[in-house]
Structure formats: C-alpha cells, structure tokens
C-alpha cells in the first residue's frame, strides 16, 4: 500500500508526517486500551528483540531497535502494543511486511525471485572451487609444465636467507 518507487524528499516527508499521525492514533488507541487491559506491559527488551530483526521503513539500512527517529519510536510502541495484545513475533513481522513492504526485513524473504539472493553466491563459489580444482589438476600433470623450466626447486637469490634458515631448521629436526 505504500508506493515502492523511489520517493522524492517531499513525498518522503509527507509520508513521514502521515505515518506519525497514524502512529499517534494507534498510540492513543493503545493508551485507551491499556486502561482496560490488565496484562503486564512488554518490556523494552522484549520489544527490541523483535525490532532488531526489522529495518526502519523510512531511514534506510537502520535497524528499528537502534533508529533514533520519532517515527521509529512510535513503531517500537506499536510492537509493544501488538505484543501486549498477544501477537507472536512472526505475526508482528508479517504485519510490518504487509504494511511497509519486504524491505523492513533484514533479509530478502525466501520466496520467488528473492531466492536468487541465496542461490547465486553458493553457485558462484562452487564454480570458483571447481575452476581451482581443474587448475590444480592441470598443474599436477607434468606435461602441462612450460618447456625449459627445470629449476622449480630453485630459490630466488633474494630469499636466500630464508632458504638458509629453512635449511638450518630442517637439519635441526
């Protein structure tokens, strides 16, 4: 329900104001509610445990539990309210996704094209490992060596000292 296109500063500000108003209503409703409900208020730690897994819908790349903006404070209160109403962690996260889009989650959801996020790196790494394996195998075949090179055991002059040290160590063993 929120537009997903890149937002201009103006529309972002408008959205922000709208959200604050909405959140204020929610808060008012909640406060009216708590007068009746006798359930213990969920603690900050319980709220943060969920907020940590969500990302601030307006300030990008900021987890909700540490975001200092007023809007995020209101969202944390919203989480507290939902917890007090007995919602589970999953339900609350789902609520945020439905209202603000998949970007509020710390990771892409595991569905549809978003699977690509999880599949591509392992495939690329396995491909890299395979290439390395082939290269090592090729190197291990003696005929793959370039002609005229018989000094593979040789030590560059520059590392002479190191070679000597290693020689000394070998004798010691």
């Amino acid at each position: 329900m929120i537009t997903k296109a890149p937002l201009s500063t103006l529309s972002r500000a408008a959205l922000f104001a709208l959200l604050i108003v909405a959140a204020a209503f929610v808060l008012l409703a909640w406060q009216a509610d708590t007068v009746h409900a006798q359930a213990p208020t969920p603690s900050d730690d319980e709220v943060n445990a969920i907020a940590r897994q969500l990302y601030c819908p307006v300030c990008e790349n900021t987890p909700l539990d540490v975001c200092p903006t007023e809007a995020c404070r209101q969202w944390r209160e919203l989480i507290r309210q939902k917890l007090a109403e007995g919602w589970t962690e999953e339900q609350i996260k789902q609520y945020f996704v439905e209202n603000y889009g998949a970007r509020v989650l710390a990771e892409p959801p595991r569905q549809g094209v978003f699977w690509l996020a999880y599949i591509v790196p392992p495939i690329a790494i396995l491909a890299g490992a395979f290439i390395l394996y082939r290269a090592l195998k090729a190197w291990n075949r003696p005929e793959a060596a370039a002609p005229g090179v018989g000094e593979s055991e040789a030590t560059p002059v520059q590392d002479e000292y190191m070679a000597r040290l290693e020689e000394e160590l070998r004798k010691r063993e």
Binding site: G101, A102, A106, V113, A117
Partner: peptide, 18 residues
C-alpha cells in the same frame, strides 16, 4: 537490492544475518 528493485520494483534489505 538494486537488482530486485529493477526487476520486481520491490526494494529489499540485505542485512547482517545474510
């Protein structure tokens, strides 16, 4: 996230857990 935005129009977050 850039690819996702281009292809699906939906922005996602790739955060620390990933």
């Amino acid at each position: 996230p850039l690819i996702s935005e281009l292809v699906t129009g939906q922005k996602v977050t790739v955060g620390p857990p990933f």
